[in-house]
Design a binder for these strands. Sequence first.
DNA 1: GTTCCGCATGAATCGATAG
DNA 2: ACTATCGATTCATGCGGAA
Lengths: 261, 261
Amino acid sequence: MPQDSVDLIVTSPPYADSRKNTYGGISPDEYVEWFLPVAAELQRVLKPDGTFILNIKERVVDGERHTYVLELILALRQHGWIWTEEYIWHKKNSSPGKWPNRFRDAWERCLQFNKDKKFNMYQDNVRVPMGDWAKSRLKNLSETDKRRDNSKVGSGFGKKVSNWLGRDTVYPDNVLYLATETGNKNHSAAFPLELPAWFIKLFSKEGDLVLDPFLGSGTTAEAAKILGRKYLGIEQKEEYYQVAVANITSLNQEDTQPRLL
Amino acid sequence: MPQDSVDLIVTSPPYADSRKNTYGGISPDEYVEWFLPVAAELQRVLKPDGTFILNIKERVVDGERHTYVLELILALRQHGWIWTEEYIWHKKNSSPGKWPNRFRDAWERCLQFNKDKKFNMYQDNVRVPMGDWAKSRLKNLSETDKRRDNSKVGSGFGKKVSNWLGRDTVYPDNVLYLATETGNKNHSAAFPLELPAWFIKLFSKEGDLVLDPFLGSGTTAEAAKILGRKYLGIEQKEEYYQVAVANITSLNQEDTQPRLL
DNA sequence: GTTCCGCATGAATCGATAG
DNA sequence: ACTATCGATTCATGCGGAA
């Protein structure tokens, strides 16, 4: 691949040592070492104003959270990546289970890395409906606030409130509150379509190129296709590749578009 | 303080370089070095089956998340602490603001450290009401609901929905969804009472000793008092100490108990 | 006695300007 | 060339006073 050719990278690599029977299963202690050559190639092909989103969560090893994700962040910075932000994916329906020393794990990291401090971000593409507070708060402004609006002299007290009139969406924050995919995909990672879709809308525009170097069942490419982006996926396992191709080609644009927009 | 005398430590130390005009203001680059001597004392006084909860979040420095929290976790492990878990505090109302390169920050870390893999955890004390799904889901049980239905993905998970009949509370997960305190405390940290209260209920029992080495306006001690634990707080600034004493002594047990239980 | 309205304010961050 | 200060931006909550 040519250098500086990709607008956005969104990926969820195989987590260390997990899914051992379905994927390669990288040992936690070797995870950073295993990932760095990949990151170097990603850095080469990403445009200077592009973004790299890494969805990952550290395993529990021997009763303790392993530190390979922390070490990976530090290592990537050593190699020139900028650690711009850490988004949290807060899962509505996390895996069940009960243990004496911990609760169910309901969140994952979505790490944002950049090559440059200036990067493309299209914030208006991910505005969310205003919270419920607005309904009760802005419902009955009519009498007093209309008067305030008409008299533009002086106080400015009413101005703040009237600023909110007519708006129905606000900017989100850095926590994504999404359900996990309960679908029937033949791939063990529960990676909901909305997760890559959110980052694709936020960090790319139509016609841009989105890359997923660990394609898996093709969720990132599906989201990119639905959103009108070009997409490129890499997958080592023949069987996942076949699943991804099937998922992507069977996509019916008319069916899926309303789901995301 | 004698060694092995504290059952639980819950604290929210001054964040690096923030609150510069109210607190000392520790530089991000010196944060780990500044914290380690404190951590050593905490390790000394904590009981072997006790827990240390550290509420912290890294600042943005020069357009990038600083790494001092990651380095602090690694350093604490070097000094013998076990990094058992990372809870997330998902804030309902985060600080406002708009920037071209990031959204509002709506979460903080609550890091759990232990001296030993075996520690006290009273999970039943923090059960939460069952979600609304239960009402509709349990009304008409299907055939698969009455027996164990194994996951189709081969994960080994299964479910037996009929197990849920008659229950009205469930265990929570590792994400706490709380509002920040917008109250009138004369202390700049917005640390809601529910946050220390949750960990106090989870990791201590009545009569246990709870320590907060950075007491601030005394929220941890307030929660401990309400929940019938002994408490011990350390505060360097005379003015915060006075505020904390006032907050704690003015506590009316009858008023506050229903708020938390 | 209850609901509704007005308003202050919070672990923030960026970019421009001043020193 | 570097650091310090300041203005601008914006969402949700709770409290006090009014209806």
